[in-house]
Design a protein around this nucleic acid. Structure first.
Length: 306
RNA sequence: GCCCAGGUAGCUCAGUCGGUAGAGCAGGGGACUGAAAAUCCCCGUGUCAGCAGUUCGAUUCUGUUCCUGGGCA
């Protein structure tokens, strides 16, 4: 059985993944699959720095604009959709370049998640409610799943709740599921490119890009989303840029303050992305202008059949 | 030119009744198994403006120089 191969292009926001991926794709006869947790949403274009019409006419992009901002989406669904997109490309004899900044999506795609158990929104909402009322959920987790409790910080409510939710809705614990799974298997053969640049330079680019987004009508875009009925408490609307503009429109922050916070939070996000990708041992680190090198590495990778 | 107030961490500032200093913000590092652009954890040595004096010891007191605000000419 022929092993399936994919090329990954990872990196922090603002390094130039989009341009790099397009250059690479045109050179190696590939199409691009977005691995970006926000570009999947329709109508959220400016704030997610989505590839524009010109870019998308150069190379076809998959998994961009696939759900509405009020629809649930998650890493598992991403992985399933990416699987079929990859299959489609391979069926047409094309290579698949998975490009984006969402580390968790890459992981879900390459290694899979531990099981077909979707998070139960009702159970999670109930637990959130209890937490808001002062319940000590971490203490409860210690009782039902001490291994998970040991790994999850008591303040990390998000993970405490998810672990409890598994314990409540299933006949097992998240820690045992995780131990059994362990991200051990690889579902694809991968060639991973990590894009980087000097931190100072990246931050300058990020700030410039935020100003550009504002010029390009980020505020109008958010107003349009709100007009369409997409509320500011949606997950999608809580992302960087969208939540900042919502706060500004609500009058909670002034314009200058909003811009400063938006820039800061984007910088911090880029830092977290570096943390995520740096951990990946198999990453080939390149600067965004090193497309040539990527092309030859990709050619070697694709030729090598087994 | 004179008077006043300041010059302490990248920034804004606190503080040391003389025993070489600490907050906020910024920043850095890390975690991450179906919300991940989310969620969470950890991290503070800097000629205390320069020089000189007093002192066992000065960032702290004194003098002086420089710089920055403000006021008066």
């Amino acid at each position: 059985m022929k092993e399936k191969k994919i090329i990954l292009v990872c990196g922090p926001t603002g390094v130039g993944k989009t341009g790099f991926a397009i250059d690479l794709a045109t050179r190696v006869d590939a199409e691009i699959i977005g691995a970006d947790s926000m570009q999947i949403y329709r109508y959220m274009d400016v704030g997610t720095a989505k590839p524009d019409a010109r870019e998308r006419s150069m190379v076809r992009h998959h998994l961009v604009d696939v759900v509405d901002p009020d629809q649930d989406f998650d890493a598992a669904r991403f992985a399933r959709m990416a699987d079929s997109a990859i299959e489609g490309l391979h069926g047409r004899g094309m290579a698949a370049i998975v490009a984006g900044g969402t580390g968790f999506y890459f992981k879900a795609l390459v290694h899979g998640l531990f099981r077909g158990t979707q998070a139960d929104p009702a159970v999670i909402a109930a637990l959130e409610q209890e937490a808001a009322e002062g319940a000590d959920l971490h203490a409860r987790l210690v009782a039902v799943d001490p291994d998970a409790a040991a790994k999850i910080h008591p303040n990390d409510l998000f993970r405490v709740i998810r672990a409890l939710e598994v314990a409540v809705t299933q006949n097992t614990t998240i820690s045992s599921l995780q131990d059994a799974h362990g991200f051990a298997g690889e579902r694809y053969r991968t060639l991973k490119f990590g894009l980087y640049m000097d931190r100072e330079k990246l931050y300058q680019r990020i700030e410039k890009r935020v100003d550009m987004m504002l010029d390009q009508g980020l505020i109008r875009e958010v107003e349009g989303l709100l007009d369409r009925g997409y509320r500011s408490d949606l997950k999608s609307m809580q992302s960087i840029g969208y939540r900042h503009v919502c706060q500004y429109l609500r009058g909670d922050t002034g314009f200058d303050e909003m811009v400063a916070l938006l820039k800061r939070d984007t910088r911090r996000y880029a830092k977290r992305q570096f943390t995520w990708f740096r951990r990946d041992k198999g990453m080939v680190w390149l600067m965004p202008q090193e497309v040539e090198r990527a092309v030859s590495l990709t050619a070697d990778f694709l030729v090598d059949r087994d």
